[in-house]
Design a protein around this nucleic acid. Sequence first.
DNA 1: GACTCATTTCGACAATTAGCTAAACGTCTA
DNA 2: TAGACGTTTAGCTAATTGTCGAAATGAGTC
Lengths: 106, 106
Amino acid sequence: MSSVFKALSDPTRRKVLEMLRKGPKPAGELADAFPVSKPTMSAHFAVLRDAGLVETERQGKQVIYHLQMSVLEDALFGFAKTFGWERKDDERQPSGLTPSEETHHE
Amino acid sequence: MSSVFKALSDPTRRKVLEMLRKGPKPAGELADAFPVSKPTMSAHFAVLRDAGLVETERQGKQVIYHLQMSVLEDALFGFAKTFGWERKDDERQPSGLTPSEETHHE
DNA sequence: GACTCATTTCGACAATTAGCTAAACGTCTA
DNA sequence: TAGACGTTTAGCTAATTGTCGAAATGAGTC
């Protein structure tokens, strides 16, 4: 839980997650969206991976990143619940993706 | 927004917010709940204040900390909204406090 | 004013973080 | 094998963080 919030505390990493919301993306494409070096981005990816917020899949030469919605969900709403907030049940916004594409559990 | 997530990234500070959820508390009482020095706790309070998550009120010798629910709410659900999540409208859990006590806007 | 209590500020320190370049290392494709 | 893609390591800054003890401040009390 702490690792998730730690991961979310950096704007670059939050933006990566937001990009991933629209669907899985290769590392290079994500990296190109930010004005930092590849090693720096790779470090950000590692933080997200360690927090369980993303998972990787190798597709040929590239490494594809998948957002793990459930982990983000659990951290955010798990914490929110402590404050008496609840989210709408089954009111997840249609993302334009199939449910399997959304989380892409392997 | 970044400052809120930064504030939330520390377990001590998250617990402080949780303690404050039950109502305003003096700095000393909050500090006593953690195995760190007073100056350290004061630094944590400063982070929470800078993020707007808490506000202070002087009451005699002591400084009373109030949770700013709305700020926490906005950050958490503002971010969640980016991912297509919504919270139940007006389904805030009864806290046993009056609405004015909950946020305690001055 | 002096004293006490509560809290913050002040230095200091070690650890962590984000960033860089350069180089090395896998893994796949051509 | 050579290139492309991405990660990792090394070595280096600079800034931030969490922590402390000691001192300073603020507000009430004697």
